[in-house]
Nucleic acid binder design. Structure first.
Lengths: 205, 205
DNA sequence: TCGAACATACCAACTATTCGGTATGTTAGC
DNA sequence: GCTAACATACCGAATAGTTGGTATGTTCGA
């Protein structure tokens, strides 16, 4: 028990902030949820803002570890690896909204004006994750006959834009079930776009 | 001057909440920005939450008026009208981030768990706007030879998902200029997807 | 048409509470 | 016995919301 207060606070931040937002979550909220006293909080983080930065970094490392060990990386076809990533994202849409939405996407929305440090940490997480898709996208592009006008980096960012937008539409929905359905629907459109971009006419039939 | 305190508060909410988020904006912030006293605020809105609901409704009416009068509606080809909508959205990406991002997208992200009333108002704005695109999309679909598997409603929602996601990536960017560039890039991908879906192989060459 | 009755719009000061943060401990492990 | 990891108690500032009052109409009967 002793020695893990910092991790418990970061896990609490990950869950509570996704549900309530950063400004809508008080330090006491986090301490209650992590079953930790305020003294412990300010022992590990010198301010609430510093916790926000640490939570974004925590999110970046834990999620990148999750995706790094995924099985789609073993596929030989780079396009199949990209589609495998999208399918994995689809499989992660489960449970309540706060369980599958994105911490840094939520945080950056309300912190980009107030805290440059949090904004930078969230941006690093989002764009860093996008960059991990770039290699496979570039490899798939290199196999194409006619070179496209768009770049692998912009398409990698597009996957993240669709995912983040899907989460917003899910949050705007009338129920968790409806939100999940819309998120899946939107990831379906993302998959269709990637397939349309890469599959040539003859391949499609 | 007298009699417009309510409108000035709604305009202040539209601008300040887009920059700071709902929870990050205090009632005093709004009163200062609208040059109105706190008494006036609680005369027109019985709570901060009620202002949030009214701001979402205000956003829905003002933005739908903006798009209703746009010139792309005069185009005869329904697909051209859809692409005209996307091009209009691209032209609106200008100035600072808080000036072109979406109020209800920002608000729903942090309010969906805390206030059902605000969540509902934001959802009505987003999905109501999506529905205005459905007619043109359906008309374009009806002109296609082979009927697609996806629906006009889901594609209409997809436009909104990409737009909302583009705003999040813009906010995560290191500068307003970089954010604008990413937003435009992402709307470009959205345009490309719509074109790929509707243009048949022969039309494309 | 005049004015009392009423309604709306707003103001300035106040309250109760919550917030982020701090000061001062206490405990456990090397 | 020294240091990092906590706990307890507290502070000042900020917060949402309230109160009692005033200024500006609006209505309607005599």
């Amino acid at each position: 028990m002793r020695g893990d207060a910092r991790t418990r606070l970061l896990e609490a931040a990950r869950d509570v902030i996704r549900a309530q937002g950063f400004a809508g979550t008080s330090v006491d909220d986090l301490c209650r949820h992590a079953e930790v006293t305020k003294g412990a909080f300010f022992h590990h983080f010198k301010s609430k803002e510093e916790l926000g930065v640490a939570a974004a970094a925590f999110w970046a490392t834990t999620t990148s570890a999750l995706f790094a060990q995924a099985s789609y990386h073993a596929l030989t076809n780079p396009l199949e690896r990209v589609l495998g990533y999208i399918d994995l994202r689809r499989s992660l849409v489960a449970g309540e909204l706060w369980q599958f939405t994105c911490l840094v996407g939520t945080m950056v929305q309300e912190s980009f004006a107030g805290s440059e440090a949090i904004r930078r940490a969230c941006g690093a997480s989002i764009f860093g994750h996008a960059e991990t898709l770039e290699r496979d996208l570039q490899a798939a592009m290199d196999e194409m006959e006619e070179k496209p006008t768009w770049t692998a980096a912009s398409l990698a960012r597009h996957t993240q834009a669709v995912i983040q937008g899907a989460f917003i539409l899910a949050k705007a929905s009338n129920s968790a079930a409806a939100g999940r359905a819309i998120a899946l629907e939107q990831l379906g459109h993302l998959r269709a776009y990637v397939e349309l971009l890469f599959r040539t006419e003859e391949e499609r039939r």
